[in-house]
């Protein structure tokens, strides 16, 4: 059997890639995808722990995370379309109407 630490390391790596991409990438869609990657990394942790504890609530949690991620995608893409209509760009560096 694969030990739990392997799952944790993999999900930590995926989560870190998501966080790094959130800050590095300049295209809004890619930034949005990096958030999804973070959520999926968490799903892996939940499933791993649910397997370790032989307890089902972690797996149920994963379903809810997926549903919420889908709802978030609906709202997020609507907002991205609104931004694109207003500014005709998807580069986060050019979305800078408001500054300190």
């Amino acid at each position: 059997m694969v030990p739990i630490s392997w799952y944790l390391i993999l999900s930590a790596v995926l989560f870190s890639i998501g966080v790094a991409a959130f800050f590095i990438k300049r295209n809004i869609i890619t930034v949005f995808m990096s958030i999804e990657l973070m959520l999926n990394a968490v799903n892996l942790t939940f499933v791993g722990f649910a397997q370790q504890w032989h307890e089902v609530s972690g797996q149920i949690f994963v379903f809810f995370v997926m549903v919420v991620a889908a709802a978030e995608a609906a709202v997020g893409l609507a907002i991205i379309i609104a931004v694109f209509r207003a500014r005709s760009t998807l580069n986060v560096d050019q979305i800078d109407l408001m500054k300190l």
Binding site: F15, G18, V19, F22, I28, V31, F32, I35, M38, L39, A41, V42, T45, V65, V68, E72, V75, G76, I79, I80, A82, V83, R85, A86, R87, I95, L97, M98
Partner: peptide, 21 residues
């Protein structure tokens, strides 16, 4: 308004990821 929503959404989504982790 659209820009504010985008920034709020992106940071909010990331914070949800952290909280969930």
């Amino acid at each position: 308004s659209a820009e504010a929503a985008l920034k709020y959404f992106l940071f909010g989504g990331m914070s949800a990821g952290f909280l969930l982790f």
